[in-house]
């Protein structure tokens, strides 16, 4: 999809989507989650490739990592979405799975894919502040 072909879809006034909040909207028949992560906007398809859950209704969390056993370190506050079914984690800013470290796909998952586990990236969409409105571009 080229930028020229994209169309803007208003979501809400900027003031109604403060940092740490989300909105779930339906655009062109697609359910899409729109997130404000500390002043930056992100949008991704509200469907988990694993079991079809409403991914964007999951918990927004930090990325937990470790440099060695028995240590816990949080990074990238609020940039991870944890699916409400089975807790698969995705990078909210890119749509990439955090569970398949070496097999990230850049193509979107095909509708009705027979092997959902092979699809590890959620479709993402550009979001901008357009004259005081949060706008998703599809």
């Amino acid at each position: 999809m080229t930028g020229a072909a994209r169309k803007p879809y208003p979501v809400c006034p900027v003031a109604e989507l403060p940092a740490g909040q989300r909105r779930i909207v339906t655009i062109e028949g697609k359910s899409i989650g729109v997130f404000n992560v500390d002043g930056r906007y992100f949008a991704l398809r509200n469907r988990c490739p694993h079991r079809g859950a409403p991914l964007c209704e999951g918990q927004v969390v930090d990325f937990v990592t470790a440099t060695k056993p028995y240590t816990w370190e949080t990074q990238r506050p609020g940039e991870v979405i944890r699916c409400p079914w089975h807790s698969w984690e995705f990078d909210l800013t890119t749509g990439r799975s955090l569970c398949f470290p070496d097999t990230i796909r850049t193509t979107s998952y095909p509708a009705g894919a027979s092997s959902a586990v092979e699809s590890e990236k959620i479709d993402t969409y550009m979001v901008t502040d357009l004259q005081g409105m949060v706008v998703v571009w599809l």
Binding site: V61, V64, T65, A66, T67, K68, P69, Y70, T71, W72, E73, R82, H86, S87, W88, E89, L98, C99, P101
Partner: peptide, 15 residues
């Protein structure tokens, strides 16, 4: 199990 609960034992880097 790891895919779902990875964050609880984040030193387990691989499946």
């Amino acid at each position: 199990t790891w895919k779902s609960l990875r964050a609880q034992t984040p030193w387990v880097k691989r499946p």
